[in-house]
Simulated scan of single mutants.
Amino acid sequence: MKYLLVQEDEDGEERLWGRCAGIEGLFVEPVPLPREVLTLRGYRPGGLLGDVLAGPGGSLQGLGDMCVEVWDDETPVQWFTLVDAVVVAHRPHPADPERYDVVLGAGVRCEESFFGLPATPRFELFAGTASAVTGAGRCSAVDGLFEERADPAPVPIELIGCEPAEPLLAALRRPRRSERAWAYLLVLDRRGAVMASRTVGLAVTGARPSVLGGALVDITLTDGGADRPPPAARPVWAQWYQGPPAAPNLWAPYGSRGRAAWLDLSTRDWRVPAPRPDRSGGEYHLDGRFVTDVPGLYCALAEALLGPGRYFGREWNALKDCLGGGFGVAPPFTLTWHDSEVARRALADVLIDPESGLSYFEEIVRLLECCGVTVVLR
């Protein structure tokens, strides 16, 4: 049995709902969002979007994912992601020729909302990836942003070869009682240790005798959850199923999405069990031969400081948190970065803050040094 289905009760105690041998539909691409048309009013250029508008043929150029932060005075209160944003058109803003009204096509996802719309909101724009986000200017309003949007249709998941425990048996007898319930799908490695956890809905669409035979049951859950790994993660999970990595650079053959999946699995290193006492001082050696993208940088850095398969951040802010202590190693210490020119070249065009003019590589080196790390580039 490779998977456990568990649910927390009101006291935080986990109850076993069942065990199963396989999952069909665990690795899926995210459901694409419907495309919408939005207008950035009074846009003051900056960053990637500003560069696109300043260049020739700015319309119909892709921007990747963009983030819109809604600010109330000095505090951001709402976040939206404009997925796969494309410039449709732009023209000078009527009240200020130095600003623009920019029409974008994008999928819109609301990330978080703490308050209602401020009386005088400010809109800050960011572009890039989850691991390398840069400022992209600001605007006075975004037409079409605050619309009601239906949740995407759930994507089912199949539990293959399931041994239901009593709570799941009760749900099979009276499926309507579990329509709004959620549980954790715990993924086990071959030793029985939990290597990953995903949230799934407990609404049951159907159940039947298992294709594996015996008294096992195959169960269809209506909603397999929105945080499932992409197909690119499948070989990474298969490797981790054999147990935590014990040799260096096993992440190196994967592309950026596979390396991101590697980092995702490594996050359990500091959550379970409790964090270890920090070590300070000494010298660590970072093998930079395979640092050709941002996820690879964090794979290599964690491996240098803590060993294969360990976690020490997956983006700039997370690395800053790790350097503050509580993750096994804390400054001061010396980091000797071998073959550093590989990362310098690969990350030369990846920016965190366009105003600083520093590449992602240079920003990481500066962060390490500001936090008390002596960085030796070789």
Rank of each mutant, 00 (worst) to 15 (best):
K2L: 07
Y3Q: 11
Y3M: 10
L4Y: 04
L4Q: 08
D9E: 05
E10A: 15
G12S: 10
W17M: 13
W17K: 04
C20F: 10
C20M: 13
G22E: 09
I23R: 02
G25K: 04
P30H: 02
P32S: 06
L33N: 03
L40A: 03
Y43H: 15
Y43M: 14
L48H: 02
L48I: 13
G50R: 08
G55N: 06
S59W: 07
Q61K: 10
G62E: 11
D65A: 10
C67M: 07
V70G: 03
W71A: 00
D72H: 11
Q78F: 01
W79T: 10
A85H: 10
V88C: 05
V88K: 07
A89N: 11
A95D: 15
A95F: 11
D96L: 04
R99S: 07
Y100K: 09
D101H: 11
V103H: 07
A106K: 00
R109L: 09
C110D: 06
C110M: 08
E112N: 09
E112P: 00
S113M: 11
S113V: 10
F114T: 09
F115N: 12
G116R: 09
P121H: 11
R122P: 00
F123N: 02
F126Y: 08
A127K: 02
G128M: 02
T134H: 05
T134Q: 14
C139D: 05
L145V: 04
F146N: 12
E147T: 14
D151G: 02
P152S: 07
A153F: 06
P154C: 13
P154I: 06
V155P: 13
I157Y: 00
G161P: 00
A170N: 09
A171R: 00
R177Y: 05
A183N: 02
V187C: 15
L188F: 07
R198T: 08
T199G: 01
G201F: 00
A203M: 06
G206H: 05
S210G: 11
G214C: 06
G214N: 10
L216N: 10
T220Y: 03
R228P: 04
P230Q: 11
A232K: 07
A233I: 02
V236A: 15
W237E: 03
W237G: 01
Q239H: 14
Y241F: 14
P244L: 15
P245G: 03
N249P: 03
L250T: 06
A252F: 01
G255R: 03
G258P: 12
L263C: 10
L263T: 08
D264F: 05
D264W: 09
L265R: 03
S266K: 09
R268V: 02
V272S: 15
V272W: 08
P273E: 04
D278Q: 02
S280M: 09
S280C: 14
S280I: 11
G281A: 06
L286N: 11
V294F: 03
A304P: 07
Y311V: 01
W316F: 12
W316D: 06
L319C: 13
K320F: 01
K320A: 12
D321A: 03
L323I: 13
L323T: 13
G325N: 09
V329R: 13
A330I: 04
P332M: 07
F333Q: 06
T334V: 12
L335C: 14
L335Q: 12
D339T: 14
E341A: 15
R344D: 13
R345I: 07
A346D: 12
A348K: 09
A348L: 05
D349R: 14
D349F: 03
V350R: 08
E362V: 08
V365L: 11
R366P: 00
V373Q: 07
